[in-house]
Computed example of a mutant assay.
Amino acid sequence: MSQFQSIFKRYEKKYILTSWQKQKFLETAKLYLAKDKYFHSTICSIYYDTPSRLMIRNSIEKPIYKEKLRLRSYGTPSADDKVFIELKKKYRGVVYKRRTAMTLREAEMFLSGKLLPKTQIEKELAWALKYYEGIEPAMFVSYERDSYCGIQDSTLRITFDSNPLIREEKLSLADGVWGEKILQDGLYIMEVKTPYAMPLWLADELDRFKIFPSSFSKYGTGYINSLKKQNTSELENVQKIKKLA
């Protein structure tokens, strides 16, 4: 397997853009941004959670600390294709991520407790699996992503996600890309990722085109949509929390 980054520590900010805002932003940002080596990708994830969906309920409450566990691929993998198991933590606005690569077959065995951890990162993942009792595949999320990186600062990454889809059935990455739309056509989720403070040129461009931060979560939105269909009392609690946030 080729080398990949297994540990991340950075700030991440999300924004919801219209097609016009995206076009204008990229026109003026071309002096600072270049297309990433892997510019376009279809990202697929299976989010793992407890039967009561403790992890996403906690995340929606916007605590100081929260975490998510997911299995991720680029495109639809076969059993022997490489995928990534990721534990994403956020503490006081800083994102910490640990990830390891396995084949899809190995990853599904690991996540079901049938494969023992070997590396330090795998041990951290195994601890999370044990801590969240009964953890299981909870939701499939996919989207189309275009990625850019800074010309002068390669640690700066800006991505644009479109057509996010979710489903709560057929929870294997091998089952392909399909599901329910959770974002209006013509809108994009822009994410700014940097280990440092946001560069001044970027802050100026965001202000120029009235691009404001958004707390949009794909898994969180999918979870709320699911509650709406069930018409449960839990939805009322989530809505109260979002109003207070």
Rank of each mutant, 00 (worst) to 15 (best):
K89Y: 03
P195A: 06
F209M: 08
N231W: 10
Y143M: 08
R70C: 05
K97Y: 06
L115Y: 10
Y15R: 10
T159V: 01
A138P: 03
L156M: 02
P213V: 10
G220V: 04
K88Q: 07
R57S: 12
K35H: 11
R105I: 06
P195T: 08
Q239C: 10
Y219D: 04
E144V: 11
G150C: 04
T194D: 14
W127A: 07
P63L: 07
E236F: 12
I211C: 07
E234Q: 14
K242H: 02
L183G: 00
S112F: 08
F84H: 05
G220I: 04
L183E: 04
L202C: 01
E180S: 11
Q23N: 11
R99W: 01
I60T: 09
I211T: 12
F8G: 03
I85K: 04
I151F: 10
P117I: 04
W201D: 02
Y148K: 10
V141I: 12
I16V: 15
T119I: 04
I85E: 08
V177M: 15
E191M: 00
K14Y: 06
K193Y: 09
V95Y: 10
K243R: 10
I211L: 13
W20N: 12
E236S: 15
Y143S: 02
H40I: 02
G113D: 01
F110K: 06
S59V: 01
I166G: 01
I43M: 15
C44N: 15
Q184T: 14
L227D: 00
A101G: 15
I46S: 03
L54F: 12
I7L: 12
E86F: 03
S226C: 05
P195C: 09
E205H: 14
Y148E: 07
L111T: 12
S217N: 03
K88P: 01
A245D: 15
K82R: 13
Y219H: 11
C149D: 04
K218A: 08
A101Q: 15
S142F: 04
I182W: 01
D207Y: 08
C44D: 06
Y15I: 12
E12R: 07
P117Q: 07
Q230G: 01
K228L: 09
L227A: 05
T76P: 06
T28L: 09
R98H: 12
P51R: 09
T221M: 02
L235T: 02
R145W: 11
I16C: 06
I135W: 00
P164V: 00
S142V: 05
I158S: 02
A138D: 13
S59E: 10
F209P: 01
K62A: 12
Q230E: 14
L116Q: 15
K22W: 10
Q239V: 13
L87M: 05
V238I: 15
D161M: 01
L200K: 10
V94Y: 11
D36W: 10
I151T: 08
I85S: 03
Q230F: 02
P63Y: 04
F84D: 01
R10S: 12
K13Q: 07
Y196E: 13
L87Q: 06
D49R: 00
L206H: 06
